[in-house]
Amino acid sequence: MSTKVISLVSIGAHPSSGRTRRAEQDARAVELGLQLAGEHLQVVHAGDHREEALRAYLGMGLDHLDVLEQPAGADVLGVLGDYLRDAGAQLVLTGSQAETGEGSGMLPFLLAEQLGWPLIVGLAEVESIDNGTAQVLQALPRGQRRRLKVRLPLLATVDNAAPTPRQSAFGPARRGVLAAQDVAVVDDELLADAQLQPARPRPKRLKVIKAKSGADRMKAATAKASGGGGKVMKDVTAQEGADAIVKLLVEEGVLR
């Protein structure tokens, strides 16, 4: 395929240890790019080229990865936009949101706005590309898919519905080149008035009973007392059992 495909990658963080790694969704963007463009895939990162976690992308079989040198806390929008326009990209793939920093997921939207390109969210599969348009499948919640036809050049984000990234191998990761490019630096003013803090666990919402009548209140109170978890139904008919299950499924809203 002659379409020029570029994947944008960032530094990820493991959800339990917080250690840097290849970002899960960005790796999927690379995987999708590799499936589409093979060795012609171009992969770009804006940040520090000495970051070892970038090698995990190289380990997927890339021989080089362009790094637009940026200090931490810089706004990478401008340099990425310039890079993409200059590179003549037809299809740009990114993850949905970064695993480090703000992770607002705005970058692809802003890039698309800046470049004036259409944007697809949740790209799952590219079915065909011809005549300047791409036919793609978009991932919807609960595993559903929607078919779209989009004009190129196109920016698309991928989420967990995109193909699982291939394993990163040590050999290619070690051989690959992190090609640094010096570009302009624009500071991001966000952290001037905002601050990152370790995440606080969100409290589980309590079931607040705002009963409209005494009877409702009573019902709510008694229901709580008896439904204290671990209800075992023994010596019941299959029908009674099934009804109890259906009742719980409906309560939980998973049966529709």
Partner: peptide, 29 residues
């Protein structure tokens, strides 16, 4: 594994976990 990245089934995940969490299950260290 080192050249092809072709550890089958859960192999790749386990190796990633070992790198990121020092244990094969990916538990918080």
């Amino acid at each position: 594994t080192l050249e092809k990245g072709a550890t089958p089934n859960k192999g790749a995940e386990v190796l990633d976990n070992l790198i990121a969490t020092d244990n094969p299950g990916g538990f918080n260290p």
